[in-house]
């Protein structure tokens, strides 16, 4: 049991070590130049396009589910949960 535990642990560490250089390699190709914001600057590409709808969703899910938050703070501002 103990050996199995250590093997799994070593495997996980090796996986992370292997992933880091790969991510580092990727970082060279991610991102854009300042003149390449044509699509990103569109209103449709913003993470929140309709704040009232996002707020209504957060409020409904906060009052009906055990989990909340993630996108930002998780409270509900009400006594509904």
């Amino acid at each position: 049991m103990k050996n199995k535990y250590y093997r799994e642990r070593v495997f996980r560490v090796a996986l992370v070590c292997a992933a880091l250089p790969a991510f580092g390699g990727c970082t060279k190709s991610i991102g854009v130049k300042p003149w390449q914001h044509d699509i990103l600057a569109k209103e449709e590409m913003q993470l929140v396009t309709h704040p009232n709808i996002t707020a209504a969703d957060d409020h409904i899910y906060f009052s009906k589910e055990g989990a909340s938050g993630g996108r930002s703070f998780g409270g509900g501002g009400c006594g509904c949960n």
Binding site: P51, N52, T54, A55, D58, H59, F62, G69, R71, S72, F73, G74, G75, G76, G77, C78
Partner: peptide
């Protein structure tokens, strides 16, 4: 400020 309200 309540949480969700700040968020909003």
């Amino acid at each position: 400020t309540s949480n969700s309200q700040i968020i909003d």
